[in-house]
Nucleic acid binder design. Sequence first.
DNA 1: GTGCCCACTTCTTCTTCGGA
DNA 2: TCCGAAGAAGAAGTGGGCAC
Length: 453
Amino acid sequence: MRFGKTLTALQVIKECDIRRTLILTHRPVVDKGWFEDYEKIFYDRPEFLYGSKNYGASLNGCEQVFANSATGSYIYFASIQDMRGSELVGGKFAKNEEIFNINWDLIIIDEAHEGTQTELGKAVLSKCRKENTRVLHLSGTPFNLMDDFKEDEIYTWDYVMEQRAKAEWDKIHQGDPNPYSVLPKLSIYTYNLGKLYPEYADADIAFNFREFFRVDKEGYFIHEANIKQFLDLLTKEDTDSNYPYSTEEYRQNFRHSLWMIPGVKEAKALSKLLQEHPVFSQFAIANVAGDGDEEEEEKEALKKVEKAIGPNPEDSYSITLSCGRLTTGVSVKPWTACFMLSGSFNTAASTYMQTIFRVQTPAVIGGKQKEECFVFDFAPDRTLKVIAETAKISSKAGKTTNNDREILGEFLNFCPIIGFEGSQMKVYNTEKMLGQLKKAYIERVVKNGFEDS
DNA sequence: GTGCCCACTTCTTCTTCGGA
DNA sequence: TCCGAAGAAGAAGTGGGCAC
């Protein structure tokens, strides 16, 4: 996600003097990030090259430096998509043979949870890996990978560890500048839309965002009145309402936000409604879902967002609408809030966490350090389930150990979950959260009419 | 030669459906 | 009822063709 895994991996290469490193990833857009971090770590090692299709040297250039000097070393970046097109792994093109033939000392697989579990992905790694090649898998959300590794093969550095280090630094290193101070604290606010709109509350999937935002063939919301009402609710000027845009102070806090929407057509329709809304019309809307809005000139997602935010984020307001774009591998520093308006009770924890941590990127905006960031979720049961899963506990009744409770308690300490019911605010502690989760599971079992085993 | 557009491919997630 | 397969939708990347 953004816990410094790139910098750490590059430092490992530097300290271990690894001569030929291949970085493989399913997200080619992270090439730029790797190149920028390479420049930070290897600024004092001119004989150590970086190569890729778009940044740094060519593979031939890298190989020449390696061959001509005993200390010549390099890191080469390649995408799994490009590699799997090679005839050597069953693809249609005679390409990338040099990469497959090199005797790599180290292969780093970035975003290892993506594109590595398929036949083609496995074939690429297997073909690149030689007898003495070491392999390092990097992932911010390795939920689908944990079972493939032994305990002593896994090193974890997560949000809780980072925030704990931030909190403990001053006690241990009195007077020294705290390197973790730039890392914002995340808070999750939940609102129960299912109570406001019971007709969209579904037994299996919690709040049914897909139905709530459903559009007709012409691209208009079927339940437009409800959605307008929802937007009005978010912006209703009332010091007691506690909705995200209800006061001037809140609007200042959430100047730039990411909204997750269930579909491309739905994002387009919402973009239109937002632009007509008395409050949201003051926000620049960047619709990065699908082809975006018809009248938009800029088609590249990240540039669209940058254009909407403008050169002075402290003075502008923006909303980015996405169905999945820009939720992995990229950082938009001015984002301080994420609105989860899609997904279901069954949303994968990895996807959810990848998305919400987009807003936790450290930043200095208008000379001020970003200290806090926020997630707004409108399906509370889903939020609790995902957080429980992330804290690696089974939230079903009777399966929670004392150790699990401690882990969850620490998570809630650094990432508070605040639930709003009507105008009441409640902060979840471990017991309350497990109780609510148990209730949600039981309600599902009762509604579905079977014993949930 | 370069840049843009379009078709195609692959992967992921979610939903639906049918067989055990 | 449950579980897995299949299909749909969407995202993202690659490569080829075409215009300039």
